[in-house]
Design a protein around this nucleic acid. Structure first.
Length: 329
DNA sequence: ACTTACAGACGTGATCCAGA
DNA sequence: TCTGGATCACGTCTGTAAGT
């Protein structure tokens, strides 16, 4: 049913129906009642595409995520989608993959879809190519980055303080008199590089044994992390503490340590990052850095809605993280 | 035959204006 | 003054007419 069809049935013009729908004045009480009855009877639902032609807003937010399989990202995504829906916005969620060129291409697609605003989930969007795509395709569309920031007039960022969080992880291990630490990461994302920076700083600050920081890159798959952990323990049996860049990696590491008969935490302490559900279900349970991803997502949504409502929003915000101690340390 | 320009259509909101 | 009809604008696509 369109407003023309409702108008014809109700014996009025389309503009009168439009006034009734939008609660505008200038319609007789009896006419308004009659039109309202027909709108309800025929379950009238406005055509948002046509409405968008007039208002210039399709009440649609483009949400880009580099990898939908990343559990801690989808947790945040679920919250973001629900909160935006409660504000009347529809989320157009797109899985971009890790390549910068692909991300730029999706930003162009969002521009063609005329979205009201864009939300980028994850630090991997913090790149020159993405920044260039934003400048070229959506220079006037508000963009909020969850756990990242690009210095452009229309971009707002909310960042987890993972650098200092990782320093806290090292401090915690040092407090247990552990001196031979390793850091294992999968991708060299801006977020992971901040964690590495924090790891190096923590070593200088709290251990200071003049050794080269042991930072090991691995594949993101279970077997890759498993093998890396076993190799680390064989080549450096003195290792007494391992920090993994994500909880799933730490879970794979725990398995490798268990099967290699390296007792956790008495011989090796293990820390993950994200404080995801995984940290609570491993054996032993996993000490993990809570980088407040839910709080981060909530802040992103609040900022996005405030920007859309024309309110002042701080361009770059930092969310503090803290360590949640469990059995693995 | 091909290219270019223009009009009309889509659904809705806003505005103008005529009639009661 | 109130009510409601007519018209325009929005962005893009399609079809048609005109020109080369």
């Amino acid at each position: 049913m369109t407003i023309y069809e409702i108008a014809k049935i109700a014996g009025v013009s389309a503009s009168t129906v439009s006034r009734v729908i939008n609660g505008k004045p200038g319609v007789n009480k009896e006419t308004r009642k009659r039109v309202t009855e027909y709108l309800e009877k025929y379950h009238y639902s406005p055509n948002e595409a046509a409405r968008g032609l007039v208002t210039g807003s399709h009440k649609m937010i483009g949400v880009l995520i580099s990898d939908m399989r990343t559990a801690h990202h989808t947790d945040g995504l679920a919250y973001i989608q629900k909160e935006l829906a409660s504000q009347g916005y529809l989320c157009l969620i797109m899985n971009t993959g890790h390549g910068d060129e692909d991300k730029a291409s999706y930003i162009q697609q969002l521009s063609q879809r005329r979205v009201d605003a864009v939300m980028l989930i994850g630090s991997t969007f913090e790149s020159q190519i993405v920044g260039k795509a934003i400048s070229e395709y959506i220079p006037r569309t508000p963009v909020v980055i969850s756990n990242g920031y690009i210095d452009l007039p229309n971009v707002y960022g909310v960042i987890a303080d993972e650098r200092n969080g990782t320093v806290e992880c090292v401090k915690h291990l040092a407090s247990q008199n552990r001196k031979n630490l390793a850091f294992i990461l999968d991708y060299e994302t801006p977020s992971n590089l901040l964690k590495v920076e924090g790891f190096k700083f923590g070593l200088q600050q709290y251990i200071n044994n003049n050794e080269v920081p042991r930072i090991i890159k691995t594949g993101p798959d279970f077997q890759g992390v498993y093998d890396t952990t076993r190799r680390l323990m064989e080549e450096h049996p003195e290792t007494d503490g391992i920090i993994y860049s994500e909880d799933p990696l730490a879970a794979s590491g725990l398995r490798a340590l268990h099967e290699g008969n390296y007792a956790v935490p008495s011989r090796v302490a293990v820390i993950g990052i994200n404080n995801s559900i995984i940290a609570q279900i491993t054996t032993p349970t996993l000490t993990s850095l809570d980088n407040m991803l839910l709080e981060l997502s909530m802040t992103c949504v609040r900022n996005l809605i405030d920007v859309l409502q024309g309110k002042h929003v701080v361009k770059k915000m930092l969310i503090y993280s803290h360590l949640v101690e469990r059995e693995s340390t």
